[in-house]
Amino acid sequence: MEINLDRAFGALSDPTRRAILARLAQGEATVGELAAPFRLSQPAVSKHLRVLEHAGLIDQGRDAQRRPRRLRPEAIKIVADWAEPFRILWERRFDNLERHLAAEKTEKS
C-alpha cells in the first residue's frame, strides 16, 4: 500500500494515534492490547487503527486469529522525511556558522 503524505500527516495529528504508533514501535499488538493502556474502548481503538491503516502507517500481522497490528517500517521513514527539511535548515545554519568562524579566524590572524 502506498503512503499518502497528507493522510499520514492527518493520522499523525492526533495524540492518541501517535501514542498507538509509539506502542507499535515496540512490537506488534492486538486491538485489545492497544486498548488497555489508553483506557479506550476496543471500537474507539479500532477507529484509530483504521485511520492509521488507511494512511499506510500500519498493517496487520500474519496471525489471522489474533490479527495483531504492526508498524510499517516506511512509517518511520515518513516521519523522518517530514522532519528532514527542518534538519537541513539547521544544518545549513551551522555550516554557515562554521564558515563564519573560519573566516573570522583568518581575519584576526
Partner: peptide, 11 residues
C-alpha cells in the same frame, strides 16, 4: 554583527 552573518540558511 556576527549572528547576522550566519543565521540565514540561504547564506
Amino acid at each position: 554583527d556576527q549572528l547576522a552573518n550566519w543565521w540565514d540558511a540561504m547564506g
